[in-house]
Amino acid sequence: MFEARLPQGQILKKLIEAVRELVTDANFECKPSGLSLQAMDSSHVSLVSLLMRADGFDPYQCDRNRTLGINLRTLASVLKCSSNDDIITIRAEDDGDSAILIFESPSSDRLSEFDLKLVDIDNEQLVIPDTQYDAVVRMPSAEFQRIVRDMQILGDSVTIACSKDGVKFSANGEIGSGSVRLKQSSAVDSEDDAVTVDLQQAVSLTFALRYLSLFSKAAPLSPTVTLSFSKDVPLLVEFRIADMGHLRFYLAPKIDE
């Protein structure tokens, strides 16, 4: 049997809200070490990779590897039936064709159970090569969300340029052009508010804002986001999930025609 109890159930709610518009169906790979998911969007432009380690659950039981194919829109609807402070348990019997979701109120006086039919998903796994990135930018996730939203006023694409001074987002379109420049923070009260640029070499890449906007829906998961860039390789956008794992998005750059 597979059973994973997540005391902070709202993490799962935020996760599914973050990916449901990008990915329709996904296979949750359940292993003794934890739960993972990898899926491409329907256009095969971006990739989502989720990891939730077993030690983030309490308890976590996985006797043998299981693949749970789940429609994320259905899952999102079911998760809306839980409260933010509910403890959420995912369970799957060995021979079952469904995943069971249990929502437990903090005082355990309300228990709801939903049985979700599993779906068969033909999902090819991609191997993500290890990359030494030219630039790694860390910033508040709310700032990332705001910049992406602001740049969308101007056009479909954003050019992100990292240098020793900081990071510059710029866009141009029919109505005009604009940019947002973030300097590296010198002194901040909280690390979560800082902007840092770890630079090997200056790099400038162009990306589709539509996808960055979808990625930024993960902002409620984590106060900070990390953007990793290298010339001619996909951008890595990473949100850490408490102390238990991460939600990563990869986006292929745009190239000049």
Binding site: M40, S43, H44, V45, S46, L47, E124, Q125, L126, V127, I128, P129, G155, D156, S157, N172, T206, A208, V233, P234, Y250, L251, A252, P253, K254, I255, D256, E257
Partner: peptide
């Protein structure tokens, strides 16, 4: 502005 490269161009199939 530019053409979109698919992600499968960078990550190979297992």
């Amino acid at each position: 502005a530019g053409s979109q490269v698919p992600i499968t161009h960078f990550f190979y199939r297992d």
